[in-house]
Design a protein around this nucleic acid. Structure first.
Length: 752
DNA sequence: AGTCGCTAGTTTTTT
DNA sequence: ACTAGCGACT
């Protein structure tokens, strides 16, 4: 009768889905059907009479939350499931579709926001339910201001370092007082500064009615600690709790889960200590290793059958992770065929590596594999450049995840800052961001005066504008500009009361003349305008929400780049291995397996960090379903330095029977063999070699064989004539397109 | 107020 | 090598 819930599950998965009561630990190896277990378990809970609203499922990313939501809805809306839940739950009527009542599914942060919007005023510290969320940039500018006020030199004491230290403490629930008490005689200037800044920073956040990301979790735990009756309410509401990627939890997240489940113990955590790759941001995989100690009566289920990768790929991954001392031994196995061995290529340098990948991609594509089934996963974003150039040259469409995020772009943050100020006039950080954007001729001098009054009267900067006429130091021009700004914000606030967010956003853009301000005649300005328009369409998705302004701001604060990944476009995906966790691709390319690169040089002296790198390599390998190409270069340009590199130690930890090694390096490192012809007649090239390697190997960057008068063909613009060449930059005239500047080494051009 | 040039900092990143 | 961010200059 319970076909829909149990069909297609293996015995271990079935056990995890069936054990509904009490603590359950699911150790889920890579590709072992973890999400399947989670979703079917939720369905089984509901089938057994648990009301959807009594279930809480917590994830780390929006993407994971969304996926789980979608899959649960799919099961629950299945006709087979509905008849099932009606028979086993006689109280429900046929009309009560499970879609009406949702389980609570969300990221730690999103769940905490939801709790805090109702409960934060219990803290009685001045924070109201209209609080705003400060992202990394906001906290950065707040901390800069604080340090400046206190005369702490941000050259000597790095703002970012201070914040990351504070963040670490907050996620360990260490208060400023505790940190201060821990300062010992050996304290250095940095620790000293942190102990001075931490309490001020905390106070300032409250004054701004703002919470940073750590606060979302920390303040929730605090509300629960201080108000047992509030905690009790949530314990009774969420009688069943599930946590995904449990190995990635940090201390405050662990505390929160314990708080929520300590009376009923109906907690199911799913994770894989071998895939713990976020120690650097506070994740502690010991949380998953300690689960049985925390809950001695826990049911432990190991999911060891892998449904994702071919035998050879899995063998390599298993053998590699076996080199780690810590972690539970697991034995991932598969019924799949061995498939292709992992292909390991030695190449000359990063340029040739890119070329090599591009060639393989082309080959696979012509063999009929869509680009969307391939991914290139690297250790760090800086590696993408050489690969991008090669892909561009080969005219292979690609999509990059990571780098500068859409919502971190300046123009996007500016527009959002307006919305935040409209929503919360106490938000000084947003005020300062927009007060002179677009320019209102309000400079530092004017703002200093406003700030002084703000400090003196304990009012926010915007509130001071209400009394702008009483400020004697301001001349009529400045008063006028400030009044205009104030009235505009008032108008927009009025507008926000009954208009959906997308209209409000359009109004902001119009009132501020924002698009005009962005138009600087360059392509970059155009791109910025386009970004603002895209934001408007993103906003449209929140229009139907209850309080669409609040919903939008919250969504924007908690959104990430991964959420914008587009599966529809036929293109190959480039991203870091970290970003690829949880994803899978039929074909995976893994460039840069060299000592110092992967494993990263920072793990050189730390066995713990080396193990984390190895787990990362494990994650990388287990993303691949059928084909896996690893490459390592003999020399690589990194941080402006060309260095020799040796193959990653991870390459020697693979299973020799399941790999094939190739040397693709077209050139040897021998002197002379790589000497390239450089045209020293050209005024720009007739100069001394700049780098040692250039001198030794004759490697000249920006080397181009194009000269003015040459005819070229551009993939997009058609045929054209080169007008001018400066280094790698070519200026060419294209029929009907006019003059275009292109970068020879990168652009999709060929000589005709 | 906006542009120009110098400097520092570049693992990984969610929220 | 590259870039973002800041201080100095025009």
């Amino acid at each position: 009768m319970s076909d829909i819930i149990f069909s297609g599950l293996n015995p271990a998965q079935k056990q995890a889905v069936e054990a509904l009561q009490g603590p359950v630990l699911v150790l889920a190896g890579a590709g072992s059907g973890k999400t399947r277990v989670l979703t079917h378990r939720v369905a089984n809970l509901i089938a057994n009479g648990v009301h959807p609203s009594e279930i809480l499922a917590v994830t780390f990313t929006n993407k994971a939350a969304k996926e789980m939501q979608g899959r649960i809805e799919k099961i629950l809306s299945d006709p087979g499931f509905n008849s099932l839940s009606n028979t086993s739950n006689p109280g429900s009527t046929a009309r009560r579709s499970p879609l009406v009542a949702h389980p609570s599914i969300g990221t730690f942060h999103a769940i905490c926001v939801r709790i805090l919007r109702r409960e934060i005023e219990h803290l009685g510290n001045g924070l109201t339910r209209e609080f705003v969320i400060f992202d990394t940039q906001d906290t950065l500018s707040l901390m800069k201001v604080i340090m400046k006020e206190r005369g702490i030199n941000d050259k000597e004491i790095k703002v970012k370092a201070v914040l990351s230290h504070i963040s670490g403490m907050k996620s360990q629930l260490i208060t400023p007082e505790e940190h201060f008490a821990n300062l010992n005689m050996n304290h250095n200037r940095f620790a000293q500064a942190v102990s001075e800044l931490y309490p001020v920073y905390e106070r300032r956040l409250i004054e701004h009615n703002a919470l940073d990301f750590d606060d979302l979790l920390k303040q929730t735990v605090e509300v629960f600690d201080q108000n047992p009756e509030v905690l009790e309410k949530y314990r009774q509401r969420w009688r069943y709790v599930l946590v995904d990627e449990y190995q990635d939890t940090n201390f405050v997240q662990y505390r929160l889960i314990r708080q929520l489940t300590d009376t009923h113990h109906n907690l199911c955590v799913v994770g894989d200590d071998h895939q713990s790759i976020y120690a650097f941001r506070g994740a502690d995989y010991r949380n998953i290793l300690n689960f049985e100690a925390d809950f001695p009566d826990a049911t432990v289920v190991k999911l060891e059958q892998n449904y994702r990768s071919s035998g050879n790929i899995l063998n390599n991954a298993n053998q590699l992770i076996g080199y780690n001392q810590t972690g539970r031994k697991k034995n991932l196995w598969t019924e799949s065929d061995p498939g292709d061995p992992i292909q390991i290529y030695e190449v000359f340098d990063e340029r040739e590596e890119g070329q090599h990948i591009a060639t393989q991609v082309k080959q696979l594509e012509s063999d009929g594999q869509p680009l969307s089934q391939m991914a290139i996963l690297y250790r760090m974003n800086a590696q993408s450049r050489a690969i991008e150039e090669a892909l561009m040259r080969a005219q292979i469409p690609y999509q990059i995840i990571g780098g500068t995020r859409f919502f971190d772009r300046r123009e996007i943050k500016d527009v959002i800052a307006y919305l935040r100020l409209i929503f919360n006039p106490r938000d000084d950080v947003s005020f300062l961001r927009v007060i002179n954007v677009p320019s209102r001729k309000l400079g530092v001098a004017t703002l200093e005066i406003v700030k002084r009054y703000s400090n003196e009267y304990g009012l926010s900067l915007f509130q001071i504008l209400e009394h702008v006429d009483d400020i004697a130091e301001l001349n009529e021009g400045k008063k006028f500009a400030l009044r205009e700004f104030r009235e505009m914000i008032y108008r927009l606030q009025d507008y926000a009361k009954d208009k959906p967010i997308s209209l409000l956003l359009d109004m902001v853009v119009e009132e501020t003349n924002f698009l005009k301000w962005l138009d600087d005649g360059t392509g970059e300005g155009e791109a910025r305008q386009q970004n603002v328009r895209e934001l408007s369409s993103v906003a449209g998705r929140y229009d139907s929400a209850d309080n669409s302004l609040a919903a939008f701001l919250e969504g924007v604060a908690l959104i990430s780049d991964l959420d914008r990944m587009n599966d529809d476009i036929e293109s190959i995906t480039l991203m870091t291995i970290h970003a690829a966790k949880g994803l899978e691709f039929p074909t995976v390319f893994l460039p840069g397996w060299e000592e110092g690169m992967f494993p990263s040089s920072s793990s050189q002296f730390s066995p713990e960090q080396l193990e984390e790198e190895r787990r990362l390599a494990y994650v990388a390998l287990t993303r691949a379903e059928e084909k896996c190409f690893i490459s390592h270069a003999r020399q690589r340009m990194l941080f402006g330095q060309r260095d020799f590199s040796s193959p990653s130690k991870f390459l020697s930890e693979l299973n020799e029977d399941c790999v094939e090694r190739h040397t693709a390096a077209s050139k040897d490192l021998g002197f002379g063999s790589r000497r390239k012809k450089v045209n020293f007649d050209h005024p720009l090239l007739s100069r001394q070699p700049k780098t040692k390697n250039e001198a030794i190997f004759g490697i000249a960057e920006n080397e181009t064989e194009y000269k003015s008068g040459d005819r070229i063909k551009h993939a997009e613009w058609g045929e054209g004539t080169i007008i001018q060449v400066s280094g790698d930059v070519i200026e060419a005239a294209f029929a009907g397109m006019g003059l275009k500047k292109i970068v020879a080494s990168v652009a999709p051009i060929e000589r005709i």
